[in-house]
Amino acid sequence: MVSRYRCPFKNLLILDFNTTCEENNYVYPTEIIQMSVSVLNIRDKLIREDQTFNRFVCPVINPVLSEYCARKTGIDQNSINTADTFPVVYDQFVAWLREHNFQQKSFAFVCEDHQTIWLIA
């Protein structure tokens, strides 16, 4: 007998964060420098390219990117210098959720690894 899993959500919101970093420094305080969200519509089995959220975030603890971080993330210093801080970007994200009518219990957040959700988000 074949069991078919039915996802209880209409959409999965795929979170992706880039953070500040330094090579071989594992106690470096990371800060979000880019927040991206893609929408996977479960029922239609497609990525909603018309519903994406992508913002750079200006870090406040370490506002200057290390050369390693810029190389690893592909984000340049000017992109974060002109970006809003996280509280502003978070408010923009909440407004984006409302604009696209993402209601409680109609979506779930997913991410590529446990570090993204537990340590960063």
Score class of each variant (00 low, 15 high):
1 M>K: 11
1 M>L: 12
1 M>F: 13
2 V>Q: 09
2 V>W: 09
4 R>M: 10
4 R>F: 11
4 R>S: 14
6 R>Y: 14
6 R>E: 14
7 C>N: 09
7 C>G: 04
9 F>K: 05
9 F>G: 01
13 L>P: 05
13 L>Q: 04
13 L>H: 04
14 I>V: 09
16 D>H: 11
16 D>I: 07
17 F>C: 04
17 F>Y: 13
17 F>E: 00
17 F>N: 01
17 F>I: 05
18 N>I: 08
18 N>G: 06
20 T>C: 04
21 C>W: 07
21 C>T: 08
23 E>G: 05
24 N>Y: 13
24 N>H: 15
25 N>C: 12
25 N>E: 09
26 Y>A: 06
27 V>E: 15
28 Y>Q: 03
29 P>E: 09
30 T>A: 10
33 I>H: 01
34 Q>C: 05
34 Q>E: 07
35 M>C: 10
36 S>H: 12
36 S>T: 14
37 V>F: 06
37 V>P: 06
38 S>P: 03
38 S>K: 10
40 L>Y: 12
43 R>P: 10
44 D>P: 09
45 K>T: 12
45 K>P: 11
45 K>E: 13
46 L>F: 10
46 L>P: 05
46 L>V: 15
46 L>T: 12
47 I>W: 08
53 F>I: 04
54 N>Q: 09
54 N>I: 07
56 F>P: 00
58 C>S: 08
58 C>K: 14
60 V>A: 14
60 V>P: 00
61 I>G: 07
62 N>E: 06
63 P>L: 02
65 L>A: 01
66 S>I: 04
66 S>Q: 03
67 E>T: 12
67 E>K: 15
67 E>H: 11
67 E>I: 09
68 Y>S: 04
68 Y>C: 03
68 Y>E: 03
71 R>E: 10
71 R>F: 15
72 K>C: 11
72 K>N: 15
73 T>P: 02
74 G>D: 02
75 I>P: 01
76 D>A: 05
77 Q>K: 01
78 N>L: 07
78 N>K: 07
79 S>T: 00
80 I>S: 00
80 I>L: 00
81 N>V: 00
82 T>Q: 04
84 D>Y: 00
85 T>N: 07
89 V>L: 02
89 V>Q: 01
89 V>P: 00
89 V>R: 03
90 Y>Q: 07
92 Q>N: 11
92 Q>S: 13
92 Q>F: 08
92 Q>W: 10
92 Q>E: 14
93 F>T: 01
93 F>W: 06
94 V>D: 05
96 W>G: 07
96 W>Q: 06
98 R>D: 12
99 E>Y: 15
100 H>R: 07
100 H>M: 04
104 Q>L: 10
106 S>L: 09
107 F>T: 02
107 F>E: 02
108 A>C: 10
109 F>V: 01
111 C>R: 05
113 D>Q: 07
113 D>L: 05
115 Q>N: 14
115 Q>D: 07
115 Q>V: 15
117 I>W: 14
117 I>R: 08
118 W>S: 13
119 L>R: 15
119 L>G: 10
120 I>E: 03
120 I>S: 03
121 A>G: 14
121 A>C: 13
